[in-house]
Design a protein around this nucleic acid. Structure first.
Length: 421
RNA sequence: GGAGGGGUCGCAUAGCCAGGUCUAGUGCGGCCGCCUGCUAAGCGGCUCUAGGGGGUUAUUCCUCUAGCGCGGGUUCAAAUCCCGCCCCCUCCGCCA
């Protein structure tokens, strides 16, 4: 959510941001009109309330019964006005809120302009794709051949877009999660074990609702929503808090499964384990001071890169252009790994500086020092990493001519073996 | 699932039964000042959040509104009375 005062005072910033994102600017005009009307009515309402407070106080003091009754009558009249105005202001508030929710974050000045994902910019490519002496197989053939990846039983248990792993592949996946967490912890992140369901107001505060309602699983009886990413509970941790400025930045990491309803047509995008209704992810998250967020985004990207480097898989870093930037993000880098079997770059991480967009909505603030006014923190999030796609990269990059898989050096401590066959 | 107790300005508490100087008191903590070789003590003052209006527009300032777990209701007026919900504690029952 953007700052209404900023939009009020500098509407061109918002119009410009929408233009860069290839979006209509009409919502800004509607918002400005709403805001002006709301403030006018609010002033009116508050004047009446001040009047009522004064009269009520006087009634309490008056000894004369007749005069008391006269004043009571006057307040009753005022109360009719107040009721009307309260209803009106309430409606305007709701509309304003809704209008604010519809406006995306303002892209940073250094985000390249572009109309869509075709204009994202590859910032760097690290590691050359491995040369194979044989034709590398896609993971969805290799896995089942090894007997450790079972699509049929996934469907049997939970329907389309689910799968089952077993044996060494299941262990490799668990090892990967554990290694990633330990890797981040060693670089200064604190691990969290989180609920995989959250209440609706946490979803709202994290910005998943109302926008992504149709993509979320939830229990209608209990106000419990399955998390689509650990970013949601990690944001929720400090909602309505006023953090101590000295403690910032806070670097958090957590493993959770992620649940997303995405009704895609069957095809290239849903083949294999690339896009399930449930997937595992290790998430990274930062709360920091506004002046530090740009640098912290670079730090986070470096942290993700160090994981990919240690896993020894070729990757590239892409900066998203204005037209492809996520709704809440001011600046985003995607990290993609090379998958030689399916022959494509796979997004395993997306690291974003959200600035105060999420903090304002979730009311997450900090105080620079005792007595100072609370300010909104900046938040950043990034995957570190998405597990299924990283698994695809591991399986396809580490496959050997005999159909077995080598285990990356970094993970052997966890898997207690160096090959899967 | 049943019975009882509780949720108040950072922390601890008072206020609620008997609605109105509650502008929510007190203690602790914290900040500023005074006093004092130093420290401590003592004395005085200050202490939350959000929003609106006015004045300057760089900050300071003046004023109003709202907030006592959340949401409704009664009333001229609600921390206080009524209804619903949430959370915490104790005990009983059930259960992995």
């Amino acid at each position: 959510m953007n700052d209404i005062r900023l939009i009020r005072e500098k509407p061109d910033l918002m119009r410009d941001a929408l233009g860069k994102r290839q979006m209509e600017t009409a919502p800004v005009e509607r918002l400005l009109a709403l805001d002006e009307e709301r403030r006018a009515k609010l002033a009116e309402l508050e004047t009446f309330r001040a009047q009522r407070n004064a009269y009520s106080k006087e009634i309490g003091r008056l000894a004369d019964a007749a005069r008391r009754e006269t004043l009571k009558d006057q307040v009753r009249v005022i109360n009719i006005q107040i009721d009307e105005l309260e209803t009106l202001v309430g409606e305007l508030d709701a509309q304003l809120q809704e209008a604010l929710y519809e406006l995306p974050n303002i892209p940073d000045a250094d985000v390249p302009f572009g109309k869509d994902d075709s204009e994202n910019v590859v910032v760097k490519t690290v590691g050359a794709p491995r040369e194979f002496a044989f034709t590398p197989q896609p993971h969805y053939e290799l896995g089942p051949k090894l007997g450790y990846l079972d699509f049929e039983r996934g469907v049997k248990l939970a329907g389309t877009r689910f799968y089952v792993t077993n044996g060494l592949l299941a262990k490799l996946q668990r090892s990967l999660i554990q290694w990633l967490l330990d890797h981040h912890i060693a670089r200064g992140y604190r691990e969290f074990g989180l609920p995989f369901m959250v209440k609706e107001d946490i979803m709202l505060g994290a910005g998943q609702l109302p926008k992504f309602r149709e993509n979320l699983y939830h229990d209608v009886e209990r106000d419990a929503w399955f998390v689509p990413t650990a970013e949601v509970p990690l944001t929720g941790l400090h909602m309505d808090d006023i953090l101590d400025g000295d403690q910032l930045p806070l670097n958090y990491t957590a493993y959770t499964p992620c649940f997303r309803k995405e009704n895609l047509a069957a095809g290239k995008d849903t083949r294999g384990i690339k896009r399930g209704f449930q997937f595992d992810k290790v998430e990274m998250y930062k709360y920091c001071k506004p002046e530090d967020s740009e640098n912290e985004l670079n730090n986070m990207v470096a942290d993700i890169e160090s994981a990919l480097t240690a896993l020894e898989i070729p990757y590239r870093v892409k900066q998203l252009c204005t037209g492809d930037l996520g709704f809440g993000s001011a600046k985003t880098f995607d990290l993609e790994v090379w998958a030689p079997g399916i022959n494509e770059w796979l997004e395993v991480s997306s690291a974003s500086n959200v600035r105060d967009f999420q903090a304002r909505r979730g009311n997450i603030r900090f105080r620079r020092e005792r007595g100072a006014k609370p300010e909104f923190v900046h938040t950043l999030n990034g995957s570190g990493l998405g597990i299924p796609r990283t698994m695809i990269a591991l399986i396809e990059n580490y496959q050997q001519a005999d159909g077995s898989l080598a285990i990356p050096q970094a993970l052997r401590e966890y898997t207690k073996s160096d090959v899967i066959r």
